[in-house]
Design a protein around this nucleic acid. Sequence first.
RNA 1: GGGAGAGUUCCAGAGUGGCCAAAUGGGGCAGACUGUAAAUCUGUUAGCGUAGCUUUCGGUGGUUCGAAUCCAUCCUCUCCCA
Length: 311
Amino acid sequence: MADKKLIVVLGPTASGKTALAVELARRFGAPVLSADSRQVYRRMKIGTAYPTDEEMAAAPHHMVGVCDPTEEYSAGCYRQDAAAVLGELFKEHDKVVCVGGSGLYINALCGGLDDLPQVDPDLRESLTRRLESEGLGALCADLERLDPEFYAVVDKSNPRRVQRALEVCLQTGKTYSSLRKRDAGADPAGGGLFVPVKVGIRMPREELYARIDARVINMMEAGLEQEARELYPLRDCNALQTVGYRELFEYFDGTVTLRQAVEAIQRNTRRYAKRQITWFLKDKDTAWFAPGQVDEIVEFIESAPGAGQAR
RNA sequence: GGGAGAGUUCCAGAGUGGCCAAAUGGGGCAGACUGUAAAUCUGUUAGCGUAGCUUUCGGUGGUUCGAAUCCAUCCUCUCCCA
């Protein structure tokens, strides 16, 4: 059954995931599946560090630039779309390389996701408005009434969590907690079609931060400002709630100088990287390597009998 | 040369006799996170293993039971008149 391997390359932003993935894809003759919550959007090429044309040519990439920035995308959409793509790819290949920095998306693919509904945009809209006018306390009160079990454990100061739970309750008429009983990890997309082999890229924090700072400068030189300017009208879309664009939008608004905006991009990218590291380090199935250890990584992948073996 | 003002914990900036290891913001660090996830949220940030204790608010010396807060003096900086 599981001689199909999904090689998952993960790590913080700017750690060199794409380059490694392309190299692995080349060596294994495998296609690449992106697991990135921002690269799914078109027109965000520079700011989200799309693979270059050469990289795309060297290894076909899937799930990059598949929807418009005006669309609402989510981990659920990703799971569905990516599973369909994988189903096709594994017909032809034993190995597929998955690269991405979005931990939740990788989990959705490899670990599964409970069967929760996609939220109705109108419902979300109305709750968002209530949140603004009546405050988080009002939503919390509702959630406490509708789903006391989940209310007991939610982060009550996180509007996203409270709102989402409430949305699900209102939409399904069931409690969020009752729909969420399954163990995350019990249901990989594709139903056991493949075994994930997770490879993480790790490097000293200092080095990573230096790479981030340099990459932001490169993005600016590559025309990020222009790209952002074209997307400025879409600034309220979820797709644009993204490091690299938000900061430039403030510059366009005249709130900050260009220099301040660029520094903010660098800083926010470092923070983002830190959050990714925190997330990825929790997954004990990941084997960590330095960026240059390609041979070791290849060897590890080939010898890996399945998931859950390394650390 | 004369006059006015300021020096606070990583930074900015409150605090003007005890409730101050010192508000608040920023930055840093750590963490949480099952459909908005490059999002959202939390904790922490003088030292010592908590309690407690020790060293901080430009330097020094005073006043006081007690000082970041009052006095003297010194240093540095800013501004104004020359």
